[in-house]
Amino acid sequence: MNTPSSDNIYLPKIAVLDRSVDEIAEVKTFYWHFDDPAEQAAFKKFRPGQFAQVSLFGAGEFPASLPPSPTEEETFFTIRTVGSCTAALHSLEPGDKFGVRGPYGNGFPMEDYYGKNLVFVAGGIGLIPLRSCIIYALAHRDKYEKIQIYYGAKSPKDLMYLQNLREWEEGAGVEFNLTVDRAEATWKGHVGVVGSLFKKPGVRVPVENTVAFVCGPPIMFRFVIKDLQALGFHDGQIVSTMERYMKCGVGKCGHCCIGMAYVCVDGPVFTYEQIKKLGEDI
């Protein structure tokens, strides 16, 4: 019985690690490609906001966002080491093999947002899934109106994707605002929670005809939602990604099911309006 491998929804494909780069403490970015070029080509059709299931054989499998934009050449993950699988990934050397399957989930409907202002609000490693959308939007710059980025990290040494941050700071066509929760006196930038950036002199968040992307830890999420609502955003204008314990990524194991949704297939992207209806905490 030779079943084509694509028919087995649980079957990972072999991936090779090209190199890994330190981002911040415990977080690294892993550049990789599929062993099979045909797999690589098929996978590259992913959408911003989708995720993949990453296999470290012997440790297990875990979901990981896709921080690259499909408009970029390389495929990579940015992963914080927290448990058995993520630690196993962190111990890999260039050339080592592991497994990947996907892409999964709905992703952000970036085409539906053509003609709108995009406001990205990221806290900590919440920048991982949003990086994909930002790069994508900048690659299709003429399709969107204003593009603003608000990024908050704990401290200056918790800032990720430094190369990109520099580009956004200097780049035309994007307003970039950065803050840290606390910093040494040498830090010249803004200090405060990410929502405080909205009140920074010179900042004007467009509300009309705008989509606000919010990703970050649960506390940050709750505060930013309040700030955005105060600015006049309604819940359907705010989009985010939900994180849930996942085992399969394809709507079968039942672990990620909340309210009426399977986060892995109906999400992970939801509007805040939808999240409220799911009836469970972010």
Binding site: K252, C253, G254
Partner: peptide
């Protein structure tokens, strides 16, 4: 229908991925 998935080592060079009934 719910299940969990886990890897177990069955030999020096061999791992099995198994699924097991789980309960909410």
């Amino acid at each position: 229908t719910c299940f969990t998935v886990t890897d177990r080592r069955v030999g020096p060079d061999e791992v099995e991925r198994v699924r097991i009934w789980d309960a909410c």
